[in-house]
Amino acid sequence: MSIMQYNGGSVIAMVGKDCVAIASDLRLGSQALGISSNFQRVFPITDRIYLGLPGLATDVTTLRERFRLRVNMYTIKEEREIEPEAFAHLVSSTLYEHRFGPYFIEPVIAGLSKTPTGGIKPFIAATDLIGCINFAKDFVVAGTASAKLFGVAEGLWEPDMEAEDLFETISQTLLNAVDRDAFSGWGAVVHVITKDKVITRKLKARMD
């Protein structure tokens, strides 16, 4: 079994109309053995950017701290908050620095970026474990349930959903995907990022 599947866990992000959502399960395992049902792997980077880190749990902790440092350095040097596009490239180059001894994480980024006219634009991206970025227009998935997430999301997602519809869609996609994955599940958390607030909800999920 690959090191990417050792701890289990999955993350998905979706684009809506002037909003984005990112969701993850809460399982931490050691192969088939469940260790924790409250393992957070989605973190706020700024008020408008969230980062999901599915993969090897030890690297979740390491990378979270590493990105905290680098985002703080960026904020100090640039004297402004980082934009999602720039953050995606920061993630990418951080991972590629370890091209031949990588962190076993496939990050998922969701955020709202500012447009030159003062509006906002939904942004999602995912990378592989060495930082190759996938800028998708609809949804991105990663983790042990990625195949299942792809299948359900492809069936449920539609363009320009409002925040409430997007929440329902990403929640249904995640729950039904992780219920068919032995290494994901044990609870779930969803963040919906809109123009003026972030809605975070814990989902009632199957605990088997």
Binding site: K148, G151, V152, G155, L156, Q172, L175, N176, D179, R180
Partner: peptide
């Protein structure tokens, strides 16, 4: 080949799982 993509979708839409 695509069992893992289709079956959870069917769980949701046929058995109304998680609804």
């Amino acid at each position: 080949a695509a069992q893992s993509l289709v079956q959870p979708f069917l769980d949701n839409q046929i058995y109304f799982k998680n609804q």
